[in-house]
């Protein structure tokens, strides 16, 4: 009897079928509710921004990988996912050239110069966003009116910062903030849509709960202290949680895999520090919202936070 040819290889002999592509598809699906809400409130301008951002990100990824002589990795969809989350962090009137500059920075300075996905120390989306925020201050604040009775072009946090706490009820209620009937970046306005997407991501285990939850605890903790000390001038923790980019940053930006810690305690610390820094910027900083900037700052601590190892079995 002839022995069949057999394959010999190391364990395990099976794989669960998980892939970066699947994770990114889930990631983009999770952003759809927020994208849908933005189109509902901001009109077709939002769709245009999203489309330009996603298409240009994929195009830049293709071009840059070709030029650098790297194997093409568009099919893992990280470029498309970066483009989508980047669009969420832009105003609905963002001009096309600015978006293209941004996506170029995401792919080149955020990813490929370091050797591709996985080797990047920072979240490319945040690098691009910060460059645009510093270079094109006006374009990055191109808010538009939201359909409804509240006539303001300012975001809730701008009103808090420049007009004071007592003016907020003239324009927004907490329910408006929750649903997203406010001005702001495309994807950050609707807390409920982001919450749905974020829970979806946690259930599908694309992200773990540690970073979003501790991020929000950090925001509530520090804003709670400010509010208890001075309730006349400081907004309450619920307002700070719902206004601005906390939900978007906590679920979709801070959880960027290469630039966030991997261990449970590391993730909890990272999220909590992000929340604290967000509130520090909101309270004392020049910017009205620090949610994205804080993530960028704290991601510098990631290599350090990754040193906090879980307690190994039998140790």
């Amino acid at each position: 009897m002839k022995t069949p040819e057999l394959v010999v290889s190391t364990i395990p002999h099976v794989h669960g079928g998980n892939s970066v592509q699947k994770m990114m598809i889930n990631f983009m699906i999770a952003l759809l509710p927020a994208a849908g809400m933005s189109v509902y409130f901001f009109g077709p301008g939002a769709i245009v921004v999203i489309a330009i951002s996603v298409v240009s990100a994929v195009a830049w990824e293709f071009i840059i990988q070709k030029v650098m002589g790297r194997p093409l990795a568009i099919s893992n969809l990280t470029g498309a996912a970066s483009g989508l989350v980047f669009a969420m962090m832009l105003p609905p009137t963002a001009p096309w050239w600015m978006i293209c500059i941004g996506t170029f920075i995401i792919i080149l300075l955020g990813k490929e110069v370091y050797g591709g996905l996985g080797n990047n120390p920072f979240n490319g989306v945040l690098i691009a966003w910060l460059v645009l925020q510093m270079s094109f201050r006006g374009e990055m604040a191109g808010w538009i009116y939201v359909a409804g009775e509240f006539l303001t072009e300012s975001t809730p946090l701008e009103i808090l910062k420049f007009e004071g706490l007592e003016s907020i009820p003239e324009y927004f209620t907490i329910a408006d903030l929750f649903i997203g009937r406010t001005t702001g970046f495309i994807g950050e306005v609707s807390a409920i849509a982001l919450l749905i997407g974020g829970v979806f991501l946690i259930v599908r285990r694309v992200i773990s709960w540690h970073i979003p939850v501790s991020f929000m605890i950090g925001v509530v903790f520090l804003s709670g202290i400010f509010w208890l000390m001075n309730p006349e001038e400081c907004a309450d923790p619920i307002f700070h949680l719902l206004a601005g980019g906390v939900f978007l940053a906590a679920f979709f930006v801070a959880t960027d895999m290469p630039s966030s810690p991997t261990t449970p305690i590391g993730m909890l610390t990272y999220g909590f520090l992000c929340g604290l820094v967000t509130m520090v910027i909101r309270q004392w900083g020049a910017w009205d919202d620090g949610a994205f900037y804080s993530v960028f700052l704290i991601s510098m601590l990631t290599p350090l936070l990754d040193k906090i190892k879980p307690k190994a079995y039998g140790r």
Partner: peptide, 27 residues
């Protein structure tokens, strides 16, 4: 033949799934 899993080894993206799953609590 068609059921054999292959491990071509990409670059680690530090997703942390292996830490999450490790019963011995290692990295």
């Amino acid at each position: 033949e068609n059921e054999i899993a292959e491990f071509p080894s990409g670059v680690c993206i530090k997703c942390g799934l292996c830490i999450d799953i490790c019963p011995m609590k290692l990295m």
